[in-house]
């Protein structure tokens, strides 16, 4: 891609990730939640993969293998199970509404759900794009 698109991507990707964390962590007060926040986090990776070539992406993401993201998703799912089954009935009525620390355990559930969705969609996007990189007809 051009230099314009690469520079714009470098500027935009951190802002998109901050917005994704905002949507997922602020989901119990404003519209949003775990699922849209996770998909926004994954769309930052999608923009990165589309704008840069294979070598530039592999240079930064070769340490973070995709299998590790699978493990991260499974640990977050385990966290959701533990929070919903064990912790949730105890601290249900702790906080006052309309402040940041409200909604009981909902904020942690939103965060873990966002992690599960984001890592899963990153795995799917990376698999599809890697198949595109392998085929020589592709223009990417």
């Amino acid at each position: 891609m051009d230099a314009i698109i690469k520079t714009t991507t470098r500027l935009l990707v951190p802002l998109i990730m901050v917005f994704g964390f905002y949507v997922s962590l602020h989901g119990h007060i404003s519209p949003g939640g775990g699922f849209p926040g996770g998909v926004i986090l994954a769309s930052a990776f999608l923009l990165l993969v589309i704008a840069f070539t294979e070598k530039e992406v592999e240079k930064h993401f070769s340490e973070i293998k995709i299998g590790d993201l699978k493990s991260v998703a499974s640990i977050a799912l385990l966290g959701i199970v533990l929070l919903e089954v064990i912790v949730r009935p105890d601290i249900l009525h702790l906080q006052t509404p309309l402040t940041l620390w409200s909604g009981g355990v909902t904020i942690f559930l939103n965060l873990f759900g966002a992690i599960v969705v984001a890592s899963g969609l990153v795995i799917i996007v990376y698999s599809l794009v890697k198949e595109e990189w392998k085929s020589k007809k592709s223009k990417w």
């Binding site: 939640g33 699922f35 849209p36 998909v39 999608l46 996007v125 223009k139």
Partner: peptide
């Protein structure tokens, strides 16, 4: 809520998957 989910899921990821299929 549904507007955010609609934009992010179908207008971003749906378009991406359709573009891969067309390619």
């Amino acid at each position: 809520d549904i507007a955010i989910t609609q934009i992010v899921v179908t207008a971003v990821f749906g378009t991406f998957i359709y573009v891969v299929a067309v390619n």
